[in-house]
């Protein structure tokens, strides 16, 4: 099967031949440098020991708030829940209007329209999961319809899941084509590609799938759905960062990174920002290029923000629960 990437920006044509066939794609992905898990985890842990205090902490907290994709992905989601979450996202701390808003509200496709209406012109974007999230076990036409629905309902961003089964059974080109197909129906919406790293299991797989998704046109690479046992970890997110860094060096195309699931505290969020800072640098230190998929993280950031501002820690009753 032949597939060409001429619709991509020009530098990517240099890598066009690697997606020319399943065999070529396999050779390319398996030719990427291996990952030594012990070393990767040690590096992530060592960046986690950075001490971020006072002015740096204030900067990091505001940056982290502005990078949150405030998420509700429950079977019990209702328009009321999505509206209140949207209000929270636009004005996270009613006692301090200087608090930045979050980057986006992340919902299921059927709630995208509600979120869109609630967010209006606030600048907070609507992100919608799609493609039979979280399992991804549906036929391609269903996944594409799911995506179209979300875009039609006003989603600015689409968080798709890859077909982990296809990837694990080595059908790389199938995964590649599916991402390309979804990207096409996204139109102007930015596409985040969720790997569910906990299911791919090995670091080598995570590096390979990152390149595969970027070759297919992902605007963001994202660790996980938040629905499995192992979600974002410092190590697997660092690996994604190394992949987007290397991809830009090779193609000139910049791709964003979104760890999701399990990031609940300010301390953790700051560790991720330190990794961005020291792996990717300033170019990625904005919500254009880095996001946190999280829900409870926001209130911890707000409590720490209040503490930094007032010198007192007032506790969970002094931030809103939405």
């Amino acid at each position: 099967m032949l597939l060409c990437v001429t619709s991509q920006s020009p530098p990517l044509t240099a890598l066009a031949d690697v997606t020319a066939s399943d065999a070529a794609l396999r050779r390319f992905l398996h030719g990427l440098p291996g990952v030594d898990g012990v070393g990767l985890e040690a590096r992530a842990a060592s960046l986690g020991t950075r001490s971020v205090k006072t002015t740096a902490k204030a900067y990091a907290i505001d940056l982290a708030i502005s990078m949150i994709d405030l998420t509700t992905l429950e079977g019990a989601d209702t328009p009321g829940k999505v509206r209140s979450l949207s209000a929270k996202g636009m004005t996270p701390d009613p006692t301090d209007r200087g608090t930045p808003s979050v980057a986006a509200i992340c919902v299921y496709p059927d709630m995208a329209a509600v979120a869109k209406e609630a967010l209006g012109t606030s600048g907070v974007r609507v992100a919608s999961v799609a493609t039979a999230f979280p399992a991804g076990r549906a036929a391609l036409p269903v996944k594409l319809a799911d995506t179209r629905d979300a875009v039609a309902a006003g989603a600015d961003e689409i968080d798709m899941v890859i077909d982990r089964g296809a990837f694990l059974s080595g059908r790389y080109l199938e995964v590649f084509e599916e991402i390309r197909a979804v990207k096409e129906v996204c139109g102007t919406a930015r596409l985040k590609v969720i790997f569910e790293t906990g299911e791919l299991s090995t670091y080598d797989n995570i590096r390979r799938v990152s390149w595969l998704a970027m070759l297919a046109g992902a605007d963001f690479v994202k660790t996980s759905t938040g629905k499995v046992a192992v979600n974002a970890t410092p190590a697997n997110t660092l690996l994604l960062m190394e992949a987007v860094r290397d991809f830009r060096a090779a193609t000139g195309v910049q791709v964003g990174v979104k760890p999701a699931g399990g990031i609940r505290t300010t301390k953790d969020a700051i560790k991720y920002l330190v990794m961005v800072n020291e792996t990717l640098g300033d170019d990625w230190l904005s919500n254009e290029w880095f996001r946190f998929g999280a829900s409870s993280l926001l209130n911890d950031l707000l409590m720490q923000r209040q503490k930094l501002r007032t010198g007192r820690y007032s506790g969970p009753d002094y931030v809103t629960v939405d």
Partner: peptide
């Protein structure tokens, strides 16, 4: 503005 770590002695 970049992410400059404040002194942490």
């Amino acid at each position: 503005m970049g992410f400059d770590y404040a002194p942490a002695p």
